[in-house]
Design a protein around this nucleic acid. Sequence first.
DNA 1: CCCCAGTCCTGCGGGC
DNA 2: TGCCCGCAGGACTGGG
Length: 283
Amino acid sequence: MPELPEVETMRRGILDAVGSRVADVSKLRCTRKPIEVVPAASQFRRRVQNQRIARVGRAGKRVVIHLENDEAIVIEPRMTGLVLVVDPPTREHLRWRLDLTDGPISQIFYWDRRGLGNVRLFSETEFRQQFGPEKLGPDALGVTPEILQEKLGHSRREIKPALLDQRAVAGIGNLYASEILHVAGIHPQRLCVAMSKRQWQSLVAATRTVLEEAIRCEGSTLGDGTYRNALNQQGSYQNAHRVYNRAGQPCPRCSGGKITRIVQNQRSTFFCRHCQKRTGALM
DNA sequence: CCCCAGTCCTGCGGGC
DNA sequence: TGCCCGCAGGACTGGG
């Protein structure tokens, strides 16, 4: 689930680690299948030990811990991963730990119930290759209508699945794609190639509105309660959801229509047939 | 090249 | 009550 707002919240949750020094790193033995940690323990430790944390960044839906020696620790939480500075929800799914000295944060934990996430270390060159513009589109908070239209405007895909394409724009996942399209007043099955310039503008404006609001709420903690910030506290944006997981409920904008659920590329999409028209009327 | 279905994994909830 | 199956959707792979 973690998408841009949740990962950005994780990033902000470990910002105080900047300036601290890495004392040690451990892949933790948990009862389940271990997550992917690359490289293996001895090399990982050799490359990070005693290095100061220069900066904490984000690459799409990944948290990036940049070290003074230009190595970058990339944490990719995928579905159920959490970056924590306090004790995790359960000992059982604790997967990885970074021990720090010389600062207010003494440990950064990676906890992951399903274990689909990973932690990888990259040199500066590798990092640029892995997360450069070839592999990852512009960040969803910084993308412009012109760039998005240039990347997707000729595609015959439907807009909602296209928004999940991280090469087009980085950070949007299944939940926020529905929320963004509702705010923009665009039908999720609208073909990219059929979108007007004005609709690309609405889409980009809605993206900023939704993601910034969600960051202020520290993300969405859904029913299973999995997602938490670095202090293991719930987000609150789920209370502001307009359409996601609200099939059958009245549309918060037009209150005339009920929210509909459809499936696109095996993923749920939620929208209002009344104020998100397949053709015609823009917002 | 472009796009989609299948895959990884665990926990939860619906149906019987 | 308990069991089983389907579903949740990050990103990657293989194939049409």
